[in-house]
Every structure is written in C-alpha cells, then in structure tokens.
Design a protein around this nucleic acid. Structure first.
Length: 875
RNA sequence: GGGUGCAUAGCUCAGCGGUAGAGCGCCGCCCUUACAAGGCGGAUGUCGGCGGUUCGAACCCGUCUGCACCCACCA
C-alpha cells in the first residue's frame, strides 16, 4: 500500500496518481516533522519585528512518559500556536521539562530497590548523578513522543528546571524573597510523609475518608477525671495537656489543675481554649502539640511543652515499652495497655474520618513538628488575586475564577523545603556561631570551618513557578524575555490551578515588577475514558496515546481530543472516536484526491461573481462563514466547537454536496468546469489551512500537493473575505431538499440506489432550472422517454418530479409516512395560528420572533399543500 | 461544614427563553470509477422530580432527589 507513495517534491504534483486511495499516517508523519524542524518553522526569533505570541509548555515530569492528558494539552497548545504562526505572529511554543523532585526521586529509588540497593548505600552525590543519567534517557523518550504528536515547539530553546540557567533563577528569587522577608525559617507542624521522609506542602496532601477506630480514654482519677476520644491513641504518649472550652461548666473545676496521664506517670494541665467544641464528643480534647496542627496552636497559646514521641519514620521514640514500635503497632499496643489499666471507657468503635495521604505515595501523613523554610504567601497572593480581579489576567472559562480566588484569598504560608536529594539545594549556609547566610548566585558561599550548606532542597513547584520567565533567561534581561514575556496564554488543566498557576502568578508579578506571567489562563479538563470515568492504573483504563497514534495516526488522535475539548470540562475519549477521526482524515485525503484527479487548481484569481454558478457562490459563501465561525471559536478557546464546525462544513457541505454537484459540471466541461475547478481548488486550499492546526500532518501533505506551496505551516491563515450569498445558499438548500426528498421516496419504495428510473423533472417556475442535470445525476434519473407514465408525482421545493415507477410495488408505506407528515404539519399550522392570534404574544414578542412564527405558518401551509398533492399523486 | 458544577437519544456530550441537536452505536439498501476508513435512507428523547415567572421554559427563579469535583477539616 505504501509503494506508490512518493516523497513529495517541493513543486506542485500534477499527477494525482501520486496519492494512494488511503491515507497512511506512518508514511508522512515523521518525514514532515523532520522537514518542519529542519526548515526552522518552529524557531522563535526574539529580534523579529512581528508581534509575539507565546505559550510555555506545562513542563512534563522528566521521569515519566506522556499520557493521553499530555496529548490533549499539547493538541490545544499546538493548535493555538500553529494558527497564530499562520496569522503572522512571532510564535513561541516553549518546550521543556520539570525535574519533579519527589516523583523522580521515588522512581529512581524504586529502581534502586529492584537492584537490591538504596540511595543511602549510594550516598547523596552518587544518587544525584544516577538521577541525571536517567533524566537523559527518560527525557529523550518524552521528546520523541512530542515529535510524534507534531508539537511545533522551538527545540533550540528546550529547558529543564535543573538547568544551570534556571537554577540561577531559583537562587536569585530565593535570595530576593529572603532579603524582602518573604522567605523565612520556622519550626511548625508540617505534613510529613514517613515513607518519602520529607515534608510536603498542604496542597500535596490528599484527604480520603478512611475507616478508623475511635477510643475513649479516661485521664485522671475519680471526680477529677476527664474522658478524651482519639483515633490516634499512640499520640497520647506525647500529650502535654487536656483542653476544654472556657464556658464548659462540666469541666470548669478542672481548668488550671492537672490530671494524670496514664501509662506515663506524667501529670498534665487542663487548659481552657476556644478551639474546643463542647458539643463534640465529651467536650474534652487531648493535646499533643508536637504531632497535631491544632494541638500545636493550642500549645502555643498556653505555652505548653512540645513533646516529640515519634521519629521521621513514625516509629515511637518515647522511652518505655512502646519505644521502637511503628505508629500502627504502637496504636494497638497503647490501647491494650490502657485497657489493662481500665482506662478505656468506651471500646473502639468504627469511625470514618478524613485522613491525609501523601499525594505521591499514598502513605498516611504524620503531622510532625519540624524546622522548615516557608514562603510568606500573603502579600504575593494578594497581588496574584488582584491581577485577575482587575482584569490584567483573564481566566477561561470564567467559572474557574472562583476556584482560583478560593486559594489565592486563603492565605496559607507555603512550606518549600523538602528533605530530598533531588532538587535545587537551598542556598543558605549555616556558620559556626549560628550565623545564617542566604547566598545569591553571584556571591561566593562562605567557606571555612563550621560552615555548611542547608541539606534540604526546594519544592518542585518553586522552580516551576518561575517557568514563564526563567525559560526566557531571567534574571538576565534577555531579548527573549523582552519579546516573549508576558506569555500570551497559559493552557493547563484545572487540577494544577493551585500547585502551578497560582505560584506562577505570585512569582511572575513579584519578579517581573508587577507584570503578570500571562494575559489569559485557559483551563482544560481531564481526559477520561469513553464512559466518563477517571483514568487510573488500578482501573486498567489508562490510554497510551502512542498506541492510538500508531494505529490511527497523530491527526486522528489530535482531532478526537480537540473535538472533545469544551472549556474546563473533562474530555471523554474512546478508541471508536479516534477511528471516526481517522475516517475523517481519510475523507479529507480522498476528497483532495478527487479534486486533483479532476484538475482542481489554485492557479489564477478566483473568477468574478458573474461567472460563478449558484453552487459556486453557495460554497464560497459557506466557506467564508465557516472562516468567521472558526475564528470566533478560536478566540474563545472553543476547540470542540471549531473542530465540529470544520468537520461538518468539510464533510457535509463540501464533500457530500459541492463535490457531488461539481461532478456534473466537470462532466459537461467548458468554461463552467474551469470555474468550478478553480473554486474547488480554492475551497480545499482554505479548508486544509483551517484544519491544519488540529490536523497538521494530513493537511500539510495534501496542501503542498494541491497548491505547490512551500508548507501550510507558514501559509497565511484564511481571512473571511466577507463574501456571502444568502440567495445562493437558499437555492442550494432547496436542491438538497429536493434530492433528499426523492431519495427518501426511492428508498421507501425499495428501489436499488443504482437503478435508473425514468423521470420527468419539472423545474419550470423555480430557481432550480440550472440544477436539472445535477439533480438527475444525483438521483439516477433518466429522461422520460416514450411510453412514460408517471406513477408518482413529488412536488418538492416548488419543483415537480414525476417518476415512472411502473415496476415498483407497494405505496402503502409512503402513504403512511405522508399521513404522518400531514398530521405534523397540520398541528404546526394550528399552533402557529393560535400563537399569531394571541394578542399578548403579538404585543410582547419581539418582531423577529413574530416573523419567524409567520414563516413557520407559511411553511406548514405549504407542507400541507405539498403532501396533499403527493398523496393524490400516488396510485 | 463551605463552595462549584452536572443531570438532554443506548453511550459520551453540545444547546441555555422562541420549530429538540452532534459524534459513536442501532436498523435497512447499496462495492454508484475520490473514499466500504465509503454512499444513501431510517428509527430513537414526559430535555431528573415538583412548583413558579412568561404569550411561550431544556433554557430563568425556587425546591427536592441523585451524581461529580474543589476547599476546610472533625479530637
């Protein structure tokens, strides 16, 4: 099948035999992509005089491979940038990858575990070296996938968050924030993952409803005792108080006194604190300041000691019988011991409550008192919120703004230090005398005895938050930064609105002196399976885009994804739909092939209106209307709508009707055929250009063949000429109606589609006279010869078709159908008449609506008339 | 607990005040020389329930039910 596919010459290919009867993506995709890159179409020139259009890639995690969600996102970005490039913008699609601290470190650790070793065996330097080696491998794989997708990125600008330049950006902004007092170090309760052995930020914690057990424990003795409830009994070892509500009379006598903490022999105070809900449980709370965020706050208010009883692996460190036990073992051991002492007042009961899990490894989070680095989010988030509030940045779809504000207006300082090895090392040195020195990129770090650098690294999102400008050379005032910042649009999923988008907003506004990182945030949904289900490995419904691209081609995958992309809404995809898109690509291929076989051309100017047939004027009118429609949808990020509009225009109007109608014109030859060849060439040229951003490969192959142009990648984006011909549109609609009506009649009569039927076609008095030949051809009607006697007369669209159906049998079906239509038409007439007779309707309805109702009434009358005649015409 | 969104044809979704739509699937006929990855024709919906506003409601308002997601976090 591939042997007759020739690599295209750069000039026009006049011999349409070049094109096989089926589009084979594998034959063209790689070759075309190579060509685009070689010719530098995707390279963005900072010195260009053209207006810039910039989108940065949401950097994929370097350790992974692209999934269908990336394919989706890339399709949208690629479509936007390809269109803008065609519109003459200096277009930059900035590529790159994220080092993905925890995720990558975990992945490499898993590799090491499989090899029977660990990062601790390797040591920090060797481990980091190992990650770098793997990065090279894994990153190359991602680049390969992007090429398969057809991503028009500027490869010469490929960046990685751990690159030297980007690391300098990280260090620069860290230093600046530190000097401005927006980065500080503090000991607080943080979310600690006992498996990853690092702190994580609040938004990296995923809460799930877990089944726990609530036990009630009596602290103290007799009248001075108080009962507390807990799901984490082991933490009682670290209790340093019991808290009750200040107004709670039940416990008023205890406040200020102490109770004995079982198992420990310690006495702990009872404190009064507003935080306690007297209605909940017993109204008394155990307070563990070192292992619970709320208790930490209570402890701080009351000056309670912070007693740490677990280490970083969640193993009990408190001296005594529980020391060395894991938190879960300790939990049952503590409960057992309490029971033995008669301290359990209410036995364990099942209790469903929400529990935090590490979003990277699902391990239950252990809140832990720890010294960490923080970003003071308040002032930064205020700016980030205002930028959207005052319209400097727009969020699409706008309903997503509320989510954004929810986070930005809710000030929570951001824990940025991670106890990992893979990432940007915190640029802070500690001196022998307890000095702390934050070091900028241009400074020499302090050396000498006693000085050492902080061992922690920064949260991955700290560096990706700089992405819109760090990739452009910041902190250097580069030409690229001047040209391509702010980015035009950010295209990303709503799921990382807080993780990434909000951080870029904060950092962008801060680092770039109030200039937001992008003008528009276009949020897309998540890709789901064909039943709308979330994709997950455990569900087995995860899609590998490469498999689909192998089977159906990149364009088919892209078109499917674009066609499902309603703003901010999740996108279901199924293999059937990719198949359908593949069929569409093939249809475009074959329509172009037909056009070439029939001499369609783009040579010379379009013939003037006086030379154009109604069919030509109709299709050109529709073509221009489609351009306008597609433009409007692009400007509103309505990918589903624009794809659907193109699909229907191309297939339903151009391929099914214009091409079919033009067959007659071509057959007749002469000047009308020449005109039609030029019009068909024009329509395909424009349609291919319109389709190119979503289906880059097949359109490139066809467009260069059809036009002989250099590449559709750098062709002009079609402009609406403003040409509209509503009369022609109505005329062709009438032809389509006529043909469809007769076809239906034929089908109902069980006539074979190929069977020629003698027919008298009376188009006198209609505007359809010019279409007689075409109608006859489409309907396979032959001239009514001698001995013709009509057995069915179908008056449609003002014309009359008389068919000689001497051979046909049963008219009952047709009679039935017509009766049904008649009833419907009569009902419509009654309704519209009633409406028009309704005074309040006439008084209040706008004129266009009334006109519309009148038209419907007229149509109903005409329908009734037509159907009656048709019924009478049946034998 | 706070918030957002969604319930429309078998499936997945558009439509968001004036004749219920698309893709896929389904049924029937056809290899009509661009395409069977195709052509032609067809069937299918008390637009979640109940109220209200309106001349008119899938669309606006209220309410109920069911789903999804986000945030906060419950000792």
């Amino acid at each position: 099948m591939t042997e007759n596919t020739q690599p295209p010459a750069d000039g026009p290919r006049s011999a349409p035999a070049d094109l096989p009867t089926q589009y084979t993506p594998a034959d063209v995709e790689e070759r075309l992509y190579e060509r685009w890159v070689e010719r530098g179409y995707f390279a963005a020139d900072a010195a260009s005089g053209k207006d810039a259009y910039t989108i940065v890639i949401p950097p994929p995690n370097v350790y992974g491979s692209l999934h269908i969600g990336h394919a989706f996102e890339h399709t949208l970005i690629d479509a936007l940038t390809r269109r803008k490039r065609m519109q003459g913008f200096e277009t930059l699609w900035q590529p790159g990858m994220d080092h993905a601290g925890i995720a990558t470190q975990n992945a490499v650790e898993r590799q090491l575990a499989a090899e029977g070793t660990s990062r601790h065996d390797l040591g920090r330097d060797a481990f980091v070296e190992r990650v770098w080696r793997w990065k090279a491998e894994s990153g190359g794989q991602i680049q390969g996938q992007m090429r398969r997708l057809g991503d028009g990125v500027d490869w010469s600008r490929d960046r990685f968050t751990m690159d030297e330049g980007l690391s300098r950006a990280v260090q620069t902004i860290f230093k600046r924030l530190y000097d401005d007092g927006l980065i500080y170090r503090a000991e607080r309760i943080i979310n600690w993952c006992p498996r990853c052995l690092t702190a994580i930020s609040d938004i990296e914690v995923a809460y799930q409803e877990d089944d726990g057990e609530l036990v009630s424990i009596r602290y103290g003795e007799g009248e001075d005792s108080v009962v507390v409830a807990t799901t984490r009994a082991e933490t009682m070892l670290g209790d340093t108080a019991v808290a009750v509500h200040p107004d709670d009379e039940r416990y008023a006598h205890l406040v200020g006194r102490t109770v004995e903490l079982p198992l420990t022999g310690r006495s702990i105070p009872v404190v009064a604190d507003e935080h306690v809900d007297p209605e909940f449980g017993t109204g008394a709370v155990k307070v563990t300041p070192a292992h619970d965020p709320n208790d930490f706050e209570i402890g701080r208010r009351h000056g309670l000691p912070q007693l740490t009883v677990m280490d970083e692996r969640a193993v009990i460190t408190a001296p005594g019988p529980f020391q060395g036990l894991d938190r879960l073992e300790a939990r049952s051991a503590v409960v057992g011991a309490l029971r033995a002492e008669g301290r359990i007042v209410a036995e364990k009961r099942p209790y469903q409550h929400s529990v935090g899990h590490c979003s990277r490894c699902q391990t239950t989070i252990e809140p832990r008192l720890s010294m960490q680095w923080w970003v003071k989010v308040g002032p930064l988030a205020k700016e980030a919120g205002d930028a959207v509030r005052d319209g400097r940045v727009t969020i699409h779809p706008k309903e997503m703004s509320s989510r954004y504000f929810e986070w930005v207006d809710n000030l929570h300082d951001w824990c940025i230090s991670r106890q990992l090895w893979w990432g940007h090392r915190i640029p802070v040195w500690y001196g022998p005398g307890g000095e702390v020195r934050c070091v900028g990129p241009e400074e020499e770090p302090p050396s000498g005895p006693g000085w050492h650098q902080d061992t922690d690294v920064l949260d991955t999102w700290f560096s990706s938050g700089l992405w819109p400008f760090s990739t452009l050379g910041w902190p250097e005032r580069t030409a690229s930064l001047e040209k391509f910042y702010p980015n035009s649009v950010l295209v990303t999923g709503y799921d990382i609105l807080f993780f990434w988008v909000a951080r870029m907003m904060m950092f962008g506004l801060y680092a770039m002196d109030g200039a937001p990182p992008f003008r528009t945030i276009a949020l897309h949904g998540m890709v789901r399976d064909q039943f709308g289900k979330k994709m997950s490995r455990s569900f087995g419904n995860v899609i590998n885009p490469l498999e689909w691209m192998d089977a159906y081609g990149s364009d088919a995958v892209r078109f499917t994804l674009a066609r499902g992309a309603n703003p901010g809404v999740d996108v279901p995809v199924g293999e059937d739909w990719v198949q359908a898109s593949r069929n569409f690509a093939n249809k475009v291929w074959n329509a172009t092939r037909f056009a070439l076989l029939n001499g369609a051309t783009v040579e010379g100017p379009l013939p003037g209106a006086e030379e154009l047939s109604a069919t030509d004027r109709w299709v050109l009118s529709r073509l221009n209307a489609t351009i306008a429609e597609v433009d409007a949808y692009y400007d509103d990020y309505q990918f589903a709508k624009l794809s659907d509009a193109l699909f229907h225009f191309a297939w339903d109007e151009v391929f099914d009707w214009y091409v079919e109608l033009s067959k007659t014109t071509f057959a007749a030859g002469g000047r009308p055929a020449e005109v039609s060849r030029r019009v068909l060439g024009e329509v395909l040229d424009v349609t291919l250009r319109l389709l190119h951003p979503v289906m880059p490969f097949v359109t490139e192959e066809l467009w260069t063949t059809l036009t002989g142009g250099e590449s559709v990648v750098v062709a002009d984006w079609p402009a609406d000429s403003g040409f509209r011909d509503l009369a022609a549109e109505e005329e062709i609609d009438a032809v389509r109606q006529l043909v469809t009506e007769v076809r239906r009649f034929r089908a109902d009569q069980g006539l074979q589609p190929g069977q020629r039927v003698p027919a008298a076609l009376d188009l006198a008095g209609t505007r359809l006279g010019a279409h007689e030949e075409a109608v006859r051809a489409l309907l396979r009607l032959q001239p009514a010869g001698e001995g013709f006697h009509a057995t069915a007369t179908l008056p449609v669209a003002g014309a009359t078709v008389a068919l000689d159906l001497s051979g046909a049998i049963d008219f009952e079906a047709e009679r039935k159908r017509l009766a049904k239509d008649l009833a419907a038409a009569e009902k419509e007439l009654a309704q519209t008449t009633a409406k028009l007779g309704n005074e309040s309707f006439l008084a209040k309805a706008p004129a266009p609506v009334v006109d519309k109702i009148r038209v419907r009434q007229d149509t109903a009358r005409a329908d009734i008339e037509r159907i009656r005649t048709q019924l009478a015409g049946l034998p």
